[in-house]
């Protein structure tokens, strides 16, 4: 049911003039994708610095709290532009992206990373902050930072893998993969 609804939404978007123009543009799509990747380096670059600091692997002589607090604003700015450019990339190719198993995994990983970030921030606010000068953060922060690194690395990998057609609907896929990718028409013929 969800797959049918998502595909109907994607087809509705794909039929719009702006979506077609964006998809068929010579330079605009490339520019948007470049902005997406460059803001990814700003957002994730800042986030990874914070995570690596929490793990004690980078900048151990800089206060973890100061680093997390000061990098927060450019990180969120990068995130905002990354999300907007990401939505535009989806809008340009909505049907294939909706039916990409990599895109679906990316969304799930992003949601998990979002929950992890929310928990991490809540713990930071509730923390007594007496550890921020030490080179290694308490275990609960290190676990959060490690999870953040893993989840966002997964987001980068699945995001890059969307370009590969290994599991596209026109490929010979198992029923489970067809369902996971949301290949509604191909499933109906089984």
């Amino acid at each position: 049911m969800l797959n049918e609804w998502l595909l109907a939404l994607a087809r509705f978007l794909a039929a719009q003039d702006w979506s077609i123009s964006l998809h068929e543009s010579i330079y605009m799509y490339g520019w948007i994708e470049s902005v997406h990747v460059l803001t990814l380096t700003v957002f994730l670059g800042m986030l990874f610095l914070i995570d690596l600091r929490m793990l004690g692997w980078a900048m151990p002589s800089v206060s973890a709290e100061a680093l997390a607090a000061r990098l927060d604003r450019p990180m969120l700015l990068g995130f905002l532009v990354m999300v907007i450019s990401g939505l535009l990339l989806y809008y340009a190719i909505p049907v294939r992206t909706t039916q990409s198993v990599w895109f679906r995994m990316k969304v799930v990983l992003m949601l998990a990373a979002g929950v992890n970030a929310w928990l991490f921030r809540r713990r930071m606010r509730a923390s007594s902050h007496d550890w921020t000068g030490s080179s290694v953060a308490p275990l609960r922060f290190r676990v959060g930072a490690g999870l953040s690194l893993l989840l966002w690395s997964g987001v980068v990998f699945t995001g890059r893998a969307i370009a590969y057609d290994w599991f596209d609907c026109h490929k010979p896929l198992s029923t489970v993969m067809l369902w996971a990718a949301g290949c509604v028409d191909e499933l109906a013929t089984r």
């Binding site: 380096t41 700003v42 994730l44 670059g45 800042m46 990874f48 450019p74 980068v156």
Partner: peptide, 10 residues
């Protein structure tokens, strides 16, 4: 690239 970008920007 992400790490290098973060280090350069920061």
């Amino acid at each position: 690239l992400v790490l290098l970008g973060g280090a350069v920007v920061a």
